[in-house]
Design a protein around this nucleic acid. Structure first.
Lengths: 194, 194
DNA sequence: CTTTAATGTTTCTGCTGTAAACATAGAGGT
DNA sequence: ACCTCTATGTTTACAGCAGAAACATTAAAG
């Protein structure tokens, strides 16, 4: 998780101090208003007040920076889901809440959400492997399917596909961005074992 | 639908003959091996054997070309789904077959599939409005929900989200590209009214 | 058969990622 | 205190991109 160093920033010396973190922070800020495809290293460098090529002292290339940002995004998503689940009354509700959180996060941070999945391969493992909420999710799914591992896997993938598809279709304006619609589509019923 | 003019192509005069179609055709070919983000007008122009800026006589800008390609993709997807549905025994099977076709199309034409959804807004209406299979789908869903319009809409959106999410997660390597997995996840059961 | 509109080409600008060579400053060893 | 080394900056340069502007060609319509 990125800790934005609000600490000391000596007026303006030759060396920046913590350019690595500053670039990540600037990237996350930029992603709030810019599609990830339009992120430019040069713009980020400008925002941070450093020359264009200084970036390369901290990231081998653009993709490495993107990966780092994606990793940040995965953490944030996981925490958001975890938080949502903790507020639920029972395991079923918690499972649904995690799904709702997934879609809401996507809508709240469209560029960051897209970035996460555009970085697929390099991130290496699946988002599930790196997502803070994933273990908890699997436990809940396992509980719902009474422990059958094949059914559990199927339920997980169905649930993930459903919320991921819903999120993407809303981001891509193929479906209206409607919070009530999320609830209707996800509604607990869907998550009962089949 | 694009008809690739295999017809007369006079050796090589100043004027190309049908640059508009040629660019679209070249674009579709390029998308078989190139991510849509890496498509360049200049490369396309080169492939077609024309100067870089000639493109602008036929498309106001790059996005317009992309839109046209996306439109092609939507048609192809629709036809592919329609074909799949026609081979099914009963309406339930046809509905499931359409979903399977959706995912299989995405896996077979990753760049084109992504392009379709990256062009969201300009394409205007939803893919559903332009997709050849959409009306047929709605009929089948309506049948499954015994005509209740609210339930029908919910079923459609759930089904669409499920297959879209599955497709995207596989394309993004978050799930293994496994045809058997598609069947297990989509399996008819999911499409019964809830 | 000439004019004209459609469709091409050249040239140019400003943006991008990134490689190479050079500059600076802070940390460690003497 | 001084010198050197290394991490981290800067400048400069190159190639590829989208697109604007000015110019060239040619097919078709009067």
């Amino acid at each position: 998780m990125l800790t934005v160093s609000t600490s000391k920033s000596p007026p303006s010396t030759y060396h920046h101090g913590d350019l690595h973190s500053a670039l990540l922070a600037a990237g996350l800020v930029a992603l709030q208003t810019t599609a990830f495809a339009d992120l430019s290293l040069r713009q980020l460098a400008r925002n941070v007040g450093v020359s264009a090529t200084a970036v390369y002292r901290h990231f081998p290339d653009k993709q490495a920076l993107m990966q780092a940002l994606a990793s940040e995004g995965i953490d944030q998503l996981g925490q958001f889901q975890k938080l949502a689940a903790e507020g639920a009354a029972n395991p079923d509700e918690a499972f649904a809440a995690t799904g709702r959180a997934y879609v809401r996060f996507a809508l709240a941070h469209p560029a960051l959400f897209r970035l996460i999945f555009s970085q697929c391969e390099p991130v290496g493992s699946t988002i599930f492997g790196n997502n803070l909420a994933s273990q908890m999710l699997q436990d809940k799914a396992s509980l719902a399917t009474k422990g059958d591992p094949a059914d559990t896997q199927k339920l997980m993938i169905q649930a993930w596909s459903l919320v991921h598809g819903l999120a993407m279709l809303m981001l891509d304006k193929q479906l209206p961005t409607d919070l009530a619609l999320i609830d209707r589509v996800i509604g607990q019923t869907t998550f009962k074992p089949l």
